[in-house]
């Protein structure tokens, strides 16, 4: 195998120093792109919202919303709805990059896998949150649940629980994007992974709906927070391997 090379024209064409966007600026660029692309069609958000309201309706046949006992189930029910509806948004996250091989262009760009992951996760977070914030009052009306009695506690649980769903959903969305049966594989992998986070969110929401503060079961708040921290760290550490091997 001959390795001839010809001496050619000089190559001292280093361009002038280039601006280097900060990491958070790069994250912001990805968030803005994902939100803009999604909000232009609103495909995933609308589907998720309709789905959430449909499940809330279906559950009303399983449990009598007027019964006092249902207050004990209501928190659990709410988070099942959020997990189901969230999956619809998360499925689209990396799937959006598929049609024209856009993911290649993002991987080729001078941003790290962690930045790409954070950007996508935060965009998903905002979308899932938006769906939940609409579904929550509907839930309150359908199930006579006073979710607003400790408003900020509820928002805290919502914020932590939704991040758990989002961080797991986003990394597994990257894992399953190229494979057969993507729509089925994502929930199959994420739901068992989410068990502790969902349990914690359910328990805390049951407390809140029944007029107690989150302080009653502070241990669940810790479970939820540690889940978020642990899996966010693991995702950031492993995302580069998922994207380029």
């Amino acid at each position: 195998m001959g390795q001839t090379t010809i001496a050619e024209a000089p190559s001292s064409v280093q361009p002038a120093t280039r601006a280097r966007p900060s990491l958070w600026h790069q994250v912001f660029i990805i968030i803005a792109k994902d939100l803009r692309a999604e909000l232009r069609t609103k495909e995933a958000v609308n589907a998720a919202l309709a789905f959430a309201i449909m499940i809330l309706t279906l559950f009303s046949f399983a449990f009598d919303p007027a019964e006092d006992e249902t207050k004990m189930y209501a928190g659990g029910l709410l988070w099942i709805v959020f997990a189901f509806a969230g999956t619809l948004v998360l499925n689209r996250s990396f799937a959006r990059e598929l049609p024209n091989d856009c993911l290649d262009a993002l991987i080729a760009a001078p941003i790290s896998g962690a930045v790409l992951f954070l950007g996508k996760a935060l965009a998903n977070y905002l979308l899932v949150m938006a769906v939940e914030l609409v579904a929550l009052p509907v839930f309150g009306i359908f199930y006579y649940a006073k979710w607003y009695s400790h408003f900020w506690d509820m928002m805290l649980v919502l914020a932590l629980g939704t991040w758990a769903i989002t961080v797991i959903g986003t990394i597994f969305s990257a894992l399953t994007v190229n494979i057969r049966l993507r729509e089925v594989m994502l929930p199959l992998l994420t739901y068992p992974m989410l068990v502790p986070a969902l349990m914690a969110s359910m328990q805390l929401t049951v407390d809140l709906v029944n007029g107690k503060s989150v302080g009653t079961d502070a241990i669940w708040l810790k479970v939820l927070a540690s889940f978020d921290i642990l899996y966010t760290a693991a995702s950031l550490a492993l995302v580069e391997i998922v994207l380029v091997g």
């Binding site: 990394i171 894992l175 992974m193 349990m199 479970v223 642990l230 693991a234 998922v242």
Partner: peptide, 19 residues
């Protein structure tokens, strides 16, 4: 990657289900 994620879950699962 999935195996690592699943294993991280073992202690959290165990303790939360215990509570």
């Amino acid at each position: 990657v999935v195996s690592i994620f699943a294993f991280i879950g073992v202690p959290i699962d165990y303790f939360s289900i215990r509570w």
